[in-house]
Design a protein around this nucleic acid. Sequence first.
DNA 1: AATAATTATTCCATATATGGGAAAATAGAT
DNA 2: ATCTATTTTCCCATATATGGAATAATTATT
Lengths: 302, 302
Amino acid sequence: MSPDLNAMALFVRVVEHQSFSAASRRLGVPISTVSRKVAELEKALGVRLLERSTRKLRLTELGQDYYAYCRRGLEEIETGTLMLSERQAEISGTLRLSVPPGLADRLIVPLVSAFQAEYAAVTVRILITEREVDFIQDAVDLALRVGELKDSNLVARPLIRYRHILVVAPAYLDAFGMPEHPRDLPTHRMITFGGWFDDVSLKLVRNSSVHTVKVEGVLALNDYAGVLCATEAGQGIAEIPSIICGEALRDGRLVEVMPDWRFPSTSLSAVYPGNRNLSRIVRLFKDYCVEQVNVLSPYAGI
Amino acid sequence: MSPDLNAMALFVRVVEHQSFSAASRRLGVPISTVSRKVAELEKALGVRLLERSTRKLRLTELGQDYYAYCRRGLEEIETGTLMLSERQAEISGTLRLSVPPGLADRLIVPLVSAFQAEYAAVTVRILITEREVDFIQDAVDLALRVGELKDSNLVARPLIRYRHILVVAPAYLDAFGMPEHPRDLPTHRMITFGGWFDDVSLKLVRNSSVHTVKVEGVLALNDYAGVLCATEAGQGIAEIPSIICGEALRDGRLVEVMPDWRFPSTSLSAVYPGNRNLSRIVRLFKDYCVEQVNVLSPYAGI
DNA sequence: AATAATTATTCCATATATGGGAAAATAGAT
DNA sequence: ATCTATTTTCCCATATATGGAATAATTATT
């Protein structure tokens, strides 16, 4: 059986202090514990490491050599422990974020840039993926996720609530007219997000009336930036999150289609694998998101 | 408080095995203990070292760096532990003996030479001193001592019993005649051992009659080799241990004075600081002395 | 020389840690 | 769909460690 490493550490301290009592006082460990631990270490190793009496202490020949090895080993371990606390204190390292497509350039990049302005030693890596990432396999510190959390091992901190909006370019309306009911939408040209394998369903609510309609996009891609661009070009009607299209609506480049029919609101959350022993920069960024996200995204809440 | 080094060692093993379960099986430690210990280490350090779920394990960024320090530290300590057991096995190192004056060349050197012929890797250092050495302060492994042991913390293993003998050269007797009683001795030329500050007392016994006589040496020194040499040269009568003068008696260079008056016998012992965790070479040499000393010194028992 | 202070060891009542098993949830293999 | 393996957490009887006191020895002080 390997000897007790804590006992070995006490042995090293006793040698450094040249005294059981001095080591005991310095470490805040009872003298009886120090004495017993060192004696147990000698027994486990089958070697007398120290010759001692009251007031006198001397390493044996083998004890001298063993002490040299142990001191170097402990120094390495202590350097590692110190490195950890310094790294925790200095707010540096790499933050690894997972972000759904379409959010990075309009929301996340400004947020991260502001964060890094405040914490210059932090590196940020962003994985844009539509997948629900695996925090272990994909090595993700924190994910921004739309919608409700399904994984019970993870913690979700809501950042903003917003809704999607049906939008269109004015020129399209001049040519094809405004739809008057959700059931009219399949007869219109639709630009959809996703739609790789299946058609997209739109679920709209007016008062307490719910209407779900399936549409086939003439253009479908999983990037809201591309969806926005095509919609502004008048190529069709699209469902776009308010935090992405809010500026185009404000500037008149897009108008809302059937404003009294609305999508259910959803949320954007910061998701991470529990609060316990969370890395300092992850904790800081999480809290930063909570504080800053409404400031940086005025189109939440439309 | 410093983190638990044994817990840190478990952490390193878990990383090496890439599995709590594999580490648990390999180390013979319950899986619940491994899990708890690593969690406690993370709490003590305030850092998540590992991201993990069932079937997946990954070091965090800080965990990776900490692991590297700890692995090097543990390797150093393990090398030291292995060094100890190898050194115990290989019978090498330095044996440090303390020997009273006058014994080294006639008894100890042959004994040590024979021991080193058998154990070639052992170095022996001999301190010839009349003092009762301090095992700690003087860094002595084993002492050869004449007489009874006074220090209760030490262990004495008797080697031989012998007595001192009053001896003289025949030429001296031709010139001055043989003393007939111990009280005659002060009128003779005496060569004494020691006698630096005080005169020397001789205590002689015949049957149950005890006579103590104080003599002043015309020559006094604390080296039996010198005492023997001067006595053989006819310069006086001397008290010399049988193990030193036995050969000169056998060869007729010296004769015994008043053979029916005798000194009390005394003993030569190997003295060492207890049997617990005694260095291998000290233990071996002690046992070797017990076995060999009568063979190498036929004049014990005269 | 006597006394006081300090040191290291040992013992034991008490405190704490551990081992082992079970349960629950997750994930990969069959 | 089921089985197997992994990790975490909890529980508790048991084992072990601990802290304080007593003891003996040594050195410093008076």
